[in-house]
């Protein structure tokens, strides 16, 4: 039983690391602001959820596990909201005639 939980936990951790890595690559490689926000919020939400669930499985039913659950709940509220706020203000800025395209450097 313990071994099964350990394997699931490592699948979650490695999967989360992979999602964050893909999100990071996307953040650099995608062509414009909105696709980049998509990549960043993917890493922010999906990757963080997987990593924290993996850690929770490692911690088990301890105080650390409860704290991780609280952090996960907090992240589930904040990171989609942050992505929304960024995209929304980019649209507003575009409507106001500001240039939101990525400077190529």
């Amino acid at each position: 039983m313990e071994q099964v939980i350990d394997i699931i936990s490592w699948i979650c951790l490695l999967g989360g690391a992979l999602v964050v890595l893909i999100g990071g690559i996307g953040l650099v490689r995608f062509p414009d602001l909105f696709t980049r926000i998509h990549a960043a919020s993917l890493a922010d939400s999906g990757g963080a959820i997987l990593v924290i669930v993996g850690c929770m499985l490692q911690a088990g039913l301890t105080l650390a596990g409860v704290k991780l659950a609280a952090i996960l709940l907090f992240l589930l509220f904040t990171s989609p909201t942050a992505g929304y706020a960024l995209a929304h203000s980019a649209i507003t800025a575009k409507d106001d005639g500001l240039d939101v395209d990525i400077e190529s450097d």
Partner: peptide, 12 residues
């Protein structure tokens, strides 16, 4: 006027 930010903020 931004409902999503307002509600999440109120919650947090």
């Amino acid at each position: 006027h931004q409902k999503i930010l307002h509600i999440v903020g109120k919650l947090l």
